[in-house]
Design a protein around this nucleic acid. Structure first.
Lengths: 255, 255
DNA sequence: CGGTATATTGATTTGGTTCAACTCCAGTGG
DNA sequence: CCACTGGAGTTGAACCAAATCAATATACCG
């Protein structure tokens, strides 16, 4: 649960007992092989999946075989929360590398909500920030050029990984083939290659055996219009705190 | 609250008292002029907005003026739920036509959750289905052709509007200019025009003064790979019901 | 009735795709 | 130990879907 705790700490500082609760809540931690489906499209989502180590992704196919990758998942990400209210998944979620995962059972939410409302809020916060990332991706696919999309994705990944200490400076592992990048960015493999090439020859990035280094974060971010505000890495606002106090019975429900 | 109630009924049949509660919960109903910002980017989201009548949209600009429209909102949509946990909006939400709206105050969530957990779940369901629509839009922008995107959007809108009785057969009002469609679909205005033209001359759609009719839903849906499963118009699954019973104290929290 | 926003149309350009080689591995099995 | 295979990356050339530019037509609006 380390990665998730690290991530949540941007929203709340979890108390010791909350951390322990969370460990217990995400029942059996499991190792999963690379290229394994954890959630399959049209199947019910039995539990939400917490990614603890490794890389994974969500994708969908069109009937004729075109594929769109919806998100990368990195440690600390929680996938499939919506399964608690929806009957089936509208994406497949698969590991890329070997992973460690934990599960949040849908039927345990009431317990969590009542015993640990702060934790419940923090997990919902994860879901909301993820939604913000979807919106940002929409902007990329709709209105950014190929080069900008590539640059933006690299900036985003660096930011997301550094949030959970998954980076060395501006360098991070990216265990992903070019056609995965292409299907993420709505481009062809060849063109992804050419964009990376261009960024390389402009001394903006460097790549070697599945690792990337952003040599000039700032100009890359500027060029790609990368604005990290959408990660919402800010402590819970007062109205959240207020609502939580109410919920815990420490403030009047109606004022 | 009519539109919202109609929409929620696809998930739950609301009891009379739940309907009344909802009316009261969405405090002052308000009329809003066309082209008014209800949520502004970077501002805190003071309350979630429930759209009761009219059309609205969410959008973002890139620094150089390119615009991406993220979603259309039609009656029954709830926008800004995430504001309860996030400090600021990462989009602007504006009316297109005159609208009627209501507001859900963030600080009232605990009350709702404790008094009416079923309602709370139903509203969260709205948020999750909306997320599913984002994902579908991602597929469009990433992997569908221009013509497919246009067709898919029309199918989606027909489906969403019929969900709240906003259609006449396969016909609905679409009070939106072509450049709004363009910024939604990641295309240029001119090209949107040409796609519509083509669909028209293939006798798939007909358009007249801001209204659209889908003359052949099925082939349009087929061509655009429109698969309405992503609306998740299905009653709450058993595990949701189970969790709600637990929450209401009618079932043991731990079993 | 003039003026601004929107729709329509054609000509031209371009960013990105497609196709087809070719290279460079890391297995793998004989 | 080496030949063989298949996946990934690299490169060039031809092509195309959609953008851009520019002009006209039309509708709406005070």
């Amino acid at each position: 649960m380390d990665a998730l705790i690290k991530k949540l700490s941007h929203f709340f500082d979890l108390t010791g007992s909350e951390q322990i609760y969370l460990e217990r809540f995400g029942r059996p931690e499991e190792a999963v092989a690379a290229k394994t489906d954890l959630i399959r499209i049209d199947d019910p989502i039995t539990d939400a999946v917490v990614l603890l180590e490794g890389w994974a992704l969500r994708y969908r196919y069109l009937p004729d075989g075109r594929r769109q990758i919806l998100t990368f998942a990195v440690p600390g990400d929680v996938v499939g929360l919506e399964g608690s209210l929806l009957r089936s998944a509208d994406y497949t979620f698969s590991t890329i590398t070997e992973c460690r995962v934990a599960y949040f059972a849908h039927t345990d939410w009431p317990e969590l909500l009542i015993d640990q409302p702060r934790l419940a809020a923090a997990i919902l916060w994860v879901s909301f920030t993820e939604q913000a990332m979807f919106l940002e991706r929409l902007v990329s696919l709709g209105r950014r050029t190929a080069r900008e999309r590539v640059g933006h994705l690299l900036c985003e990944l660096l930011a997301r990984l550094s949030m959970i200490d998954g980076t060395h400076g501006s360098c991070f592992r990216l265990p992903v083939t070019q056609d995965v990048l292409a299907d993420t960015l709505g481009l062809s493999t060849v063109h992804v290659y050419r964009c990376l090439q261009a960024l390389r020859s402009d001394d903006l990035v460097r790549m070697a055996d599945s690792s990337v280094e952003l040599l000039d974060r700032d100009s890359l971010a500027k060029e790609a219009a990368f604005e990290p505000a959408y990660f919402h890495l800010a402590p819970a606002p007062w109205w959240t705190q207020q609502a939580l106090l109410k919920f815990e019975g420490k403030a009047p429900l109606r004022d």
